[in-house]
Amino acid sequence: MIDFSNWDIVRNLLFATQWTVLLSLAAFVCGSSVALCLSAIRLTRNPVMVRFVKVYIELFQGTPLLMQMFLCFFGLSMMGYEISAWGAAILSLTLFTSAFLVEIWRGCIDTLPKGQWEASRVLGMNFLQTLRFIILPQAMRVAFAPTVGFSVQVVKGTALASVIGFVELTKAGTMLNNATFEPFKVFIFVALIYFALCYPLSLFSQFLEKKYHVAR
């Protein structure tokens, strides 16, 4: 057993936290980009493309994130595509995040009156112009709160990256526990850091929900 002070434990955990934050940001940005493309595809009403998006959502919502990480890391390696733990974690979290954001944003778009699509066609707007000037500005106001709220799930989901060897907050906690044999102390610190990351996001989501309340 190695003798670690409380500050040594916290210092090492905070160092690992930066990778949790970077992984969360990368997954959220990439997932949002993919979700935006899939949402636009769904709005085209093309039966083949709509079916593709539906299968995509059902696949990545219906399978555990842990299994997706295993398949991205070990599966791609077995197929001859070498991928790092960092790359596999971003890829799996991007797929997971985008599948849920597409559904969140679909619900937000569906809250808008259908007559706005018809009015835009009467004005001679094409599909992209309708999205850019009519639909997206209104849908974004509705989508802000649930999107920020879902980011909490992304942050917590990064903990599963520890199973493929990526050293983030949870993995660092496990390594420190193996060195100190003080699981209660180490994982209390880990839990507090996760709380410090997620609680402000939850409060911000509640603030946005009140600010952009649909009824107002």
Rank of each mutant, 00 (worst) to 15 (best):
R51H: 08
R51G: 15
R51Y: 07
R51P: 00
R51I: 00
F52S: 06
V53H: 13
K54G: 03
K54Q: 10
K54E: 10
K54L: 08
K54T: 13
V55R: 09
V55G: 04
V55P: 00
Y56T: 06
Y56S: 10
I57M: 12
E58N: 15
L59I: 14
L59V: 13
F60L: 09
F60Y: 15
Q61N: 15
Q61T: 08
Q61Y: 05
Q61W: 06
Q61I: 08
G62E: 02
G62I: 06
G62H: 05
G62P: 07
T63E: 05
T63P: 14
T63N: 10
T63C: 10
T63A: 11
T63R: 11
P64Y: 09
P64V: 07
L65D: 01
L65T: 12
L65F: 11
L66S: 06
L66F: 12
L66C: 07
L66Y: 06
M67F: 14
M67I: 15
Q68M: 13
Q68H: 12
Q68A: 11
M69R: 09
F70E: 03
F70R: 10
F70M: 14
F70N: 07
F70K: 10
L71M: 14
L71R: 06
C72Y: 01
C72G: 02
C72M: 15
G75M: 01
L76T: 08
L76K: 03
S77A: 15
M78P: 00
M78F: 05
M79N: 00
G80V: 01
G80Q: 05
E82F: 07
E82Q: 14
E82T: 09
I83Y: 05
I83P: 04
S84K: 03
A85K: 14
W86T: 04
W86H: 05
W86R: 09
G87L: 04
A88Q: 10
A88H: 09
A88I: 13
A89M: 06
I90E: 09
I90F: 09
L91W: 01
S92V: 00
S92F: 02
L93T: 02
T94M: 13
T94I: 03
T94K: 00
T94Y: 01
T94W: 01
T94G: 03
L95M: 08
F96D: 01
F96P: 00
S98A: 15
S98P: 05
S98G: 04
A99D: 10
A99Y: 10
A99K: 07
A99R: 07
F100P: 03
L101R: 11
V102Y: 11
V102P: 13
V102E: 13
E103S: 10
E103G: 11
E103Q: 15
I104K: 02
I104R: 02
I104H: 01
I104D: 01
W105S: 04
W105L: 12
W105G: 03
W105D: 06
R106Y: 06
G107A: 08
C108V: 04
C108R: 14
D110C: 03
D110Q: 15
D110G: 01
D110H: 12
D110R: 12
T111K: 00
T111H: 00
T111I: 01
T111A: 05
L112K: 10
L112S: 12
L112R: 08
L112A: 12
P113T: 09
K114E: 11
K114V: 10
K114Q: 12
